[in-house]
Amino acid sequence: MWKWLHSYADPERAYNLSGKLLPWFAMLATALVGIGSVWGLAFAPTDYQQGDSYRIIFIHVPAASMSMAAYMAMASSAFIGLVWQIKSADWAAAAIAPIGAVITFIALITGATWGKPMWGTWWVWDARLTSELVLLFLYLGVIALYASFEDKVLAARAAGILAIVGVINIPIIKYSVEWWSSLHQPSTIRITEKSTMSTDMLYPLLINIAGFGLMIGAITLIRFRSEILARNGMRPWVRELAIAEGVK
């Protein structure tokens, strides 16, 4: 098992494997997000309380749930890279960070556009929104730290430490923010409870959650591949590839 895994730590094999996986991820992701969004936008029944504005849920909830999952994925690969010195894991972490930031940004924006018609305001200092905002800052910190080192081996280690420190802090931040908002907001606003959702609404939502997950996987593979190429510029196989596909 370990031997098998280690063979994929070799950059060339990792590059080729991710190249083989990419079309499947991309196709499935496009299909699922397409089906889920069209179903959600056009075919799911109108909510009797929120009218059609609730249709934002089909992208908001997937983005919000994936934003945390992407951070966990980034931190675990950073951990693997730090502890077992597997460089591919470092590159994977570096590939996920910008994607996670974009997903978190989407979750915030869709939350705001949903909040405006429902709560009458673009932003409330609600626990979920606030911790999502903090999560965005954590992502941006990791990205900025990774970008500011010239030596990318060091950059990956530094950003990895920061990501892991962030993981330890996320539950504390979440808890403190929840506690804080319940204290400052006695008449709090509730997002519709998920359990009361009819299956006609639930299926497109689940499809979109799966689709967003696969899409993050697909974009991670794309970025992971270019990260491998950039970090292995001196290897013969990369040079051959560059000569074949590079400048005309």
Partner: peptide, 16 residues
């Protein structure tokens, strides 16, 4: 960069 890295981590202390 330093402020971006550590201010988010300070939030729980500030709140409590």
């Amino acid at each position: 960069l330093l402020s971006l890295l550590i201010l988010p981590l300070y939030i729980p202390v500030l709140i409590f």
